[in-house]
């Protein structure tokens, strides 16, 4: 077995809630609360979940853009969370990030060439050499070398995202965290950017952590997928396993919301509607965090938080009553004699 390029072990990132005149801490937001995962070389790990489930915080905590509260991050066997400032600066060459918002992620006052060259300049390359490399990279991401003289606002959203990708590539990293890199783009442009990401992954032998809320996009690009709910990973499996035989009821409900391409199947498709809203990560439910919205929750779920366990080879789920092949969520609901709110997908 190869050594994973990235290992995350019981990572927690908590934010204090301070209120009042003396900024007393009155609570804690458990944005990321005990996440364990790994990424193999040349692999894409998809991370999906609703807004507010902590996936963005997870990505930034891995890079220590936000200091994690507890747990460890290990890059090729070396501790990232334990690295001092100088070492961290070196490690940053290996791990880069592409942001969601192509408008906010580029400094509006710097020409594109300087934006892409900046990481090189920070690490001590002279201007001429850096500019040559930027010219080559602009070509790689499908832009022209003379685009480098322009400013970010002169480009479209898709082009800006290419610029962001070029900046992430310039230091020749091994791992890139893609934080919803296509959610802000038009669907037609999304496809172009996804293709570009796949091309550069092959060419540079990159590993990706692909954070998104769009399940179709994640399915297309990922090798394995982690599903997050309220700061925790609830299911982690190979892409096909996860999409075909989800083990966690939350995954099942998410998947039921994905449109299918076959019009006949789409006509038949039913959405599983979850009851209630996403609980606050400052005050997560007891036991299994999903029990408040789970259609098959039982007494044990309210008290006992389930561990992430392997339900079949390489397929992990944090659920006391995992669903499986031949035992779908709908089956389980019927067995329990409960109602499941199914709605015609087309109405939504």
């Amino acid at each position: 077995m190869t050594q994973p390029i990235l290992e995350v072990n019981d990572l927690k990132t908590h934010f204090p809630i301070r209120q009042g005149l003396f900024r007393r801490q009155t609570g804690t937001v458990l944005a990321v609360d005990g996440v364990t995962l790994y990424v193999d070389p040349h692999e894409t790990l998809g991370v999906v979940g609703e807004s507010g489930c902590g996936k963005t915080t997870l990505g930034r905590s891995i890079l220590r853009l936000i200091e994690p509260t507890a747990g460890t991050v290990t890059y090729r066997g070396e501790s990232v969370t334990g690295a001092d400032k100088d070492r961290m600066r070196q490690l940053r060459k290996e791990m880069q990030i592409v942001f969601q918002d192509p408008y906010a992620s580029l400094n509006p006052r710097m020409p594109v060439r300087d934006i892409i060259a900046e990481p090189l300049r920070i690490h001590g390359m002279d201007r001429k050499e850096a500019n040559d490399r930027v010219g080559a990279l602009l070509g790689k991401v499908g832009m022209m070398a003379d685009h480098g003289n322009r400013y970010p606002h002169e480009f479209s959203g898709g082009q800006r995202q290419r610029i962001g990708i070029a900046r992430a590539l310039v230091l020749d990293p091994s791992l890139i965290i893609l934080d919803e890199p296509v959610s802000a783009l038009d669907v037609s442009i999304q496809a172009q950017v996804i293709n570009l990401l796949e091309e550069i992954q092959d060419e540079f032998g990159l590993s990706f952590v692909f954070i998104a809320h769009d399940l179709s996009v994640v399915r297309h690009i990922s090798d394995r997928v982690a599903v997050m709910y309220l700061g925790q990973v609830v299911e982690l499996a190979d892409r096909n396993q996860l999409y075909e035989t989800p083990a966690h009821p939350y995954t099942s409900s998410l998947l039921s919301a994905v449109p299918v391409a076959d019009p006949n199947a789409e006509r038949e498709r039913k959405r599983i509607l979850l009851e209630g809203d996403l609980p606050s990560p400052a005050n997560p439910p007891s036991g299994c965090r999903f029990h408040t919205r789970c259609p098959i929750a039982q007494d044990v779920c309210r008290v006992d938080p389930p561990e992430l366990r392997e339900v079949s080879a390489g397929h992990w789920a944090a659920c006391h009553f995992p669903t499986g092949p031949g035992d779908s969520l709908i089956n389980q609901v019927q067995r329990l004699g409960r109602d499941l709110r199914l709605v015609e997908a087309r109405e939504h």
Binding site: R60, M88, F99, D101, A104, S105, N107, I122, L171
Partner: peptide
């Protein structure tokens, strides 16, 4: 808090560079 500042930190920029190259010009 802007993402371009986060990007600079992710590239290894020190506080001086963040302040003078990224924040002040804006």
């Amino acid at each position: 808090e802007q993402e371009f500042v986060q990007a600079a930190i992710a590239a290894g920029a020190k506080p001086g560079r963040i302040m003078f190259r990224h924040i002040i010009p804006n």
